[in-house]
């Protein structure tokens, strides 16, 4: 399993997760995550080579829906709940410095 989690990795992960952790939070998080990951090493001993991953508890397949339209939500009711809206649309700050 991977080496002990570093502060740099925690910073990278916090960026991926769009969380602006404070310096103090980053340090605490690094220690806590390291502790947990250390505990999670218990499964390293298991031989899992021939084990199929289990992703769903109940084996279903082909759950399909007919292509039938239902009414839209009311735009005003929805936009009323938005932090910012304008001209029938959701408003967001500019994408400056954003890696699109």
């Amino acid at each position: 399993m991977a080496e002990k989690i570093s502060k740099e990795t925690v910073v990278k992960v916090s960026r991926l997760a769009r969380l602006s952790l404070t310096t103090e939070e980053t340090e605490r998080m690094t220690a806590q995550l390291a502790g947990m990951l250390e505990h999670f090493r218990d499964i390293d001993a298991l031989d899992l080579a021939s084990v199929e991953p289990m992703t769903q508890p109940y084996p279903l397949k082909n759950v399909l829906r007919k292509d039938v339209e239902l009414p839209s939500l009311d735009r005003d009711e929805v936009l009323d709940q938005a932090p910012a809206a304008e001209s029938g649309r959701f408003r967001v700050p500019p994408t400056i410095g954003f890696d699109v």
């Binding site: 839209s72 735009r75 029938g88």
Partner: peptide, 25 residues
């Protein structure tokens, strides 16, 4: 018109769940 074809799934509202469209398949 903008935002007139929306539902909980389209907007990613909390609790909304996807179900596959047979005709799309």
């Amino acid at each position: 018109e903008p935002n007139t074809n929306i539902d909980p799934v389209t907007l990613g509202l909390p609790g909304a769940l996807p179900v596959l469209n047979q005709h799309a398949i």
